[in-house]
Design a protein around this nucleic acid. Structure first.
Lengths: 203, 203
DNA sequence: TCTCGCATGCAGACAAGTCTGTACGTCTCT
DNA sequence: AGAGACGTACAGACTTGTCTGCATGCGAGA
């Protein structure tokens, strides 16, 4: 029995189930949000029952938090880390472009959807999202301040406000133009350059 | 005898109740979304019971739709109409600035919240929102095309995509920097100019 | 102007549906 | 055979929508 037999180890079986549930939940969260996320739908979509979901995750909230950390790790690997360059301008422009590419996937909406849904509330999922966004905002503010200090970024509003505008613009353009290649990247570039005060055609 | 006297006509009484319910629902929708909107909370916040809400509106969905049309009318009066100018560039820049001012109010988030919540679904409330947004997108696309034709807006991606980027940027910056005067308007200007391909400092 | 009958605004109780979380049984792997 | 993965039945909580009853405003007639 060496062929495609469903002969799996317990750990592999568990990991496979967990991943299937995680992806189904991410897909549902990105389009319907947390409130409309029913564990019955997630389990069925993943090919299991609710019992399996509860065996893998403590509950609905834990599942959503797992999705958030999973998406964040994916985002950091594909967007955040590649954009860690020396030059602040390059870093900010690269981050924006990479994010536009990242948004071509359906799960990219998860963070935006949950952030909007839990804005102004005190919920563990909302806190996780704001923690991620706040860190990103702070990093971008530092980059902007450094760029202003070295002269590669023209002066303007305070770094915190400029960074807030930068991240919100990156998020919005990425989601709104998701998949409309190649205009998603071009318009992302335009918007970011505008916020930072850079000249239109610098590439 | 304007507030203390409970001697009011029926029509006035009805209008007062309806407005109180409408405002409470708008506040809740902007921060918690449709799914977390409980009629019990709305009624209590407005100073009535659920029976009053059901007497004024056919149900939860009708209430949300009424909030949407109310917010849209307010937005059109304060943002859309004042921005109807002859010059496309002035119209787009004025619209963005007026929207930044509009976003300083708490109910401004309603359209964004509901749009995100019902994205990718088939729901009457979602359809109402997308209808509003689509009309605005189309109008902005026409403005951009006209501006390109007359030469006041430099060439770039197709008007539809540029308009989508424009509206999403206006929405995002307005919400994210709501109230941070005067940087909300300045960064709104920067972002919009960037999307349209206009030079940074033209004011 | 007073009063009576009707319509309307509004509150509370009730029924029905939905979802979460838990308990327990079954099957598969070690 | 024991342990873990998974399915199913059940209880509890929450919300929507409806229905009934009471209070208040409005118009007609004496």
């Amino acid at each position: 029995m060496t062929g495609a037999t469903p002969r799996r180890t317990q750990a592999e079986r568990r990991a496979r189930t967990r991943q299937a549930v995680l992806e189904a939940a991410a897909r549902r969260l990105s389009t319907h949000g947390y409130a409309h996320l029913t564990l019955d739908w997630v389990a069925g979509e993943a090919g299991y029952s609710r019992g399996a979901v509860y065996h893998q995750f403590a509950g609905k909230e834990e599942l959503a938090l797992a999705v958030v950390t999973w998406v964040e790790e994916t985002w950091t690997a594909e967007v955040g880390s590649p954009a860690a360059e020396a030059d602040p301008v390059d870093a900010l422009l690269t981050l924006a472009r990479k994010h536009a590419v990242f948004c071509r996937r359906d799960v990219a909406r998860v963070l935006l959807t949950l952030r909007i849904e839990f804005a102004g509330q005190d919920h563990p999922v909302g806190r996780a999202i704001t923690g991620i966004v706040d860190r990103l905002d702070a990093d971008c503010a530092d980059l902007i301040a450094a760029g202003r200090a070295s002269g590669v970024i023209p002066p303007g509003p305070p770094p915190r406000e400029t960074a807030a505008a930068y991240t919100s613009v990156v998020e919005a353009v990425g989601i709104e133009l998701a998949g409309r290649t190649p205009y998603d990247i071009e318009l992302m570039d335009r918007a970011v350059r505008g916020v930072l005060g850079l000249p239109p055609t610098g590439n």
